[in-house]
Design a protein around this nucleic acid. Structure first.
Length: 577
DNA sequence: CTGCAGGTTGACAAC
DNA sequence: GGTTGTCAACCTGCA
């Protein structure tokens, strides 16, 4: 039996430190190791991604590329442009690969993609190895030991997690890597499906050239540039990559008291550049920081600190446990990313869930672009758009406002905006948190409503966040900064801000609208319907959105993925012939 | 079955 | 200005 020839497929794990999958690849003692990223058109066209997040991804790739080059002394990351099923099939054959190794990914699209890739590889006689590395515990196993029910409470994560066993300690980054062999590839002619192009808002004017060649414009599989992928320049201040991730972790952990006594609800959503929280979530998303490295650094600091350390759910450990909870819920619930067909999501007849509604469309548009006339809400939404990151409680505040608190608009609409704009967007966490805030799952105390005026004021009396992100209100006195509609004509003139001209009038009276929304929530709770209740289908038009493929797909979140058609390899061969 | 405690992070008024 | 009770009352998990 010859030596192993390995493709290491990077996806959710753009790092070299504590990578169980990479470790498994190296344990095969391969004679050649091809570190591959597949530039998947699904993400380029069928997922919402802002310029900020595209740049963050490229940052992570560039950093891993540099690290790999250092260890191999030759090649870096090989970015193969094309549908992973097709390019990997070609690479497995042309490079005489014996093992395909990657980190387990339980996202909806990823599960279906990996199932197909696995089948394709095994058919070619290639061994497929996948390892857990993205969560503290295996989300599938968490649900299994929960009796097959999806894990949806933090207490359950703690209990079942400790039953499964302690989180493994992180493993060191390799000190050397085998080089890749010959990288010549008989590039398959990929049919790139670019419709629907959900990334259109981030794209520049030029043509997408990413898929002209499988090896990229220089023929060397180099990490793409923003120009090459034709994405507009990113405006935000936050950059990605393993090097920055590890530095940021150490910088935060250096303050032992802050780390050990961390309580999320006590961190200030009005503080920015830098925020009071760790800002490590985007690194977790791209895998440029290992979750286990983060977890054990926190646990060790807390242990050394002693009895004064904070505890879950508010503590840093608690934040990481929530993440595991959402991953478990996502892979344990059918149609997790939407209301319809989701047995664990309360059915609420949200505006814009199914029926057109001009007023609600206008409110959604105003919310999306920070033009609601509520300075606190608008500041957060503009911060989200410019920087790609907002504080957790700020997310709560604007999510509550759009859904159960005031606008009574379907949570999926808001989740789509977050999906596009957040640099730390994680489908499981984003969808889960939107369900939480909209009181459709996880949480149900709908009478606790965040005020668009009082909540911000509590943290930030003089409105620094508003003055930064809503400059038209810069000179409004503190007294009116959260409620500019209280200004007289004279006040407006003095502040250089005429309402309805320089800054919008509020879209509604928030106290009145909160009453309307609360009454709606009460009625919806009394009805006790869930996303899979048969009554829902019956009350709607016969052209039920649950069944109709294309239109629904365009509207849904990552769940679109599972409906996106990935051509079986055989069909492609037939097409090419 | 019932009852009850607890639930990451509310708002507001009254003291 | 910081603490406390009320608002109107949800869910899950466990005894």
């Amino acid at each position: 039996m010859g030596a192993a020839r390995v493709i290491y497929w990077f996806r959710t794990d753009l790092r070299l430190h504590d990578s169980p999958a990479l470790h498994a690849a190296l344990e095969l003692k391969p004679e050649v190791l091809y570190p591959v990223w597949t530039w998947d058109p699904h993400y380029v066209y069928h997922a919402r991604v802002s310029s900020n997040r595209w740049r963050y991804l490229l940052d992570c790739q560039a950093d891993v590329d540099k690290r790999i080059k250092k260890l191999t002394g030759s090649n870096g990351l090989l970015v193969l442009r094309g549908n992973p099923l097709n390019v990997l099939k070609q690479a497995l054959q042309d490079w005489k690969i014996t093992h395909l190794v990657f980190e387990q990914d339980t996202d909806t699209y990823a599960l279906s993609r990996d199932t197909q890739v696995r089948a394709m590889a095994e058919k070619l006689g290639v061994k497929v190895v996948s390892k857990l590395g993205r969560t503290l515990w295996d989300p599938i196993e968490l649900n299994k030991v929960h009796g097959g029910k999806p894990v949806m409470t933090l207490a359950a994560v703690q209990k079942l997690g400790s039953q499964i066993g302690p989180v493994p300690r992180p493993i060191e980054a390799p000190t050397s890597l085998p080089s890749a062999g010959d990288t010549k590839l008989e590039a398959p002619k990929d049919e790139i499906q670019d419709a629907p192009d959900l990334n259109e808002p981030a794209r520049g004017d030029g043509r997408v050239t990413s898929y002209d060649q499988v090896a990229g414009p220089n023929g060397d599989y180099s990490v793409p540039t923003m120009e090459e992928i034709n994405i507009k320049p990113a405006e935000g201040p936050y950059r990605g990559g393993e090097t920055l991730a590890l530095e940021a972790l150490e910088a935060y952990m250096a303050d032992k008291k802050k780390t050990a006594t961390f309580e999320k609800p006590k961190t200030n959503p009005g503080v920015f550049h830098p925020p009071e929280t760790t800002l490590l979530s985007p690194h977790l998303h791209f895998g440029s920081l290992s979750i286990r490295t983060f977890y054990w650094r926190v646990m060790d600091v807390c242990k050394a600190y002693g009895s004064g350390a904070s505890k879950p759910p508010a503590s840093l450990e608690g934040q990481l446990l929530f993440r595991d909870m959402y991953f478990a819920a996502q892979c344990g619930i059918d149609n997790f990313e939407q209301t319809l067909g989701n047995a664990h999501c309360r059915y609420i007849p949200w505006r814009l869930l199914q029926e057109p509604d001009e007023e609600a469309e206008a409110w959604l548009e105003a919310w999306t672009h920070g033009r609601t006339g509520f300075p606190w809400i608008d500041a957060i939404m503009r911060q989200l758009r410019r920087d790609g990151w907002i504080h957790h409680l700020a997310r709560h505040s604007v999510a509550c406002f759009l859904t159960r608190g005031h606008c009574y608009i379907a949570w999926e609409k808001g989740a789509q905006v977050f999906e596009e704009l957040l640099i730390d967007h994680e489908t499981a966490c984003n969808v889960g948190n939107w369900q939480w805030l909209s009181c459709t799952a996880f949480f149900s105390q709908y009478y606790r409503v965040y005020s668009p005026v009082a909540f911000g004021k509590k943290w930030d009396k003089s409105g620094a966040l508003i003055r930064e992100f809503v400059p038209e209100l810069k000179n409004v006195p503190d007294k009116y900064i959260y409620e500019p509609w209280l200004m007289s004509k004279v006040d407006m003139k003095a502040a250089g801000c005429i309402l309805g001209q320089d800054y919008p009038k509020r879209i509604f009276d928030e106290k009145e609208q909160a009453k309307v929304a609360l009454a709606g929530m009460k009625e919806a709770y009394d009805a006790k319907l869930y996303g899979d209740s048969p009554q829902i289908g019956k009350t709607k038009s016969p052209e039920s959105p649950v069944k109709s493929g294309k239109k629904r797909g365009q509207q849904s979140l990552d769940g679109f993925a599972k409906k996106a058609k990935i051509e079986p390899a055989e069909e492609h061969e037939a097409n090419e012939a």
